[in-house]
Simulated assay, not measured.
Amino acid sequence: MDNEENEVIDLTEILSAVRQHLLKLIFVTLAAALVGFTASKFLMTPKYDSSALMIVNTRQDVNANVTSDQINSATKLVSTYSIIIKSDTVLQQVIDNLGLNLTYAQLNKRVTVAAVDDTQVMKITVQSDSPEWARQVCEQIITVAPDVIKEAVEAGSVKVISNASLATEPVSPNIKKNTMLAAAVGFVLVIGIIVLQVLLDNKINTEEDVTKYLDMTVLGVIPQYDQGGKKE
């Protein structure tokens, strides 16, 4: 019972401390949100994605009837084809064709290849701070990749079903998300400091503290006066 009572009293003290510092809490939260917004809007470089879709077939004759087993096999080939697309055989040729001032490793970091919902469709994505640059590189990849894949695998084929797109909106930074995250960090930081101050405060500040910590009855209180007026 004593432990439960102390826990309730501690929680009350914490809530009281939060109310006392409510303006500070609001100010810091808004200031943190403003910092997050400003950093995202003016300091971070926007990134754009350009994507294209390719479908994987296990047979080079794409006009022939396709069975479910062939579809399953094609789905499994997506991971193999993804590795080939991101290999230096493809990307170095893209660099040479476009005359890019990048190394293979640098371009590789900007390219992602993934299956779409575990299907035989691959999504090739190129990210850059220039939407047109990303589109050109993505377009060149889907131009070079099919012939390289056919030569390497010697079976099956890939076909472009969606050309490289030109992004109109950046994919990062997410200004709204960053602003809310910064506000949450500011809020939690102030709450943490307030809670820490309450937990570390072992001073006798009020008559209630005398009863709580010393288990003694308060007989009287001497008020504090400041310049002739009662302060507290």
Rank of each mutant, 00 (worst) to 15 (best):
N72Q: 12
S73C: 05
V78F: 08
S79P: 01
T80A: 08
I84C: 11
I85C: 10
K86H: 05
S87W: 02
D88K: 14
D88F: 01
Q92E: 15
Q92G: 12
I95T: 13
I95N: 08
L98I: 15
L98H: 13
N101S: 11
N101I: 00
N101L: 06
L102Q: 14
T103F: 00
Y104Q: 07
A105P: 03
L107R: 02
L107Q: 04
N108S: 09
V113W: 06
A115L: 01
Q120V: 00
Q120H: 05
Q120W: 07
K123L: 11
Q127M: 13
P131S: 05
E132G: 14
W133E: 15
Q136A: 09
E139S: 15
Q140F: 05
Q140L: 07
I141Q: 07
T143C: 09
P146A: 02
D147V: 02
V148Y: 02
V148W: 02
I149R: 06
I149L: 09
K150G: 10
A152E: 10
E154S: 11
V158R: 08
V160Y: 09
V160K: 14
N163I: 01
A164N: 10
T168V: 04
S172N: 05
P173H: 07
N174Y: 12
K176I: 14
K176M: 14
K176D: 09
A183C: 04
A184C: 13
V185K: 00
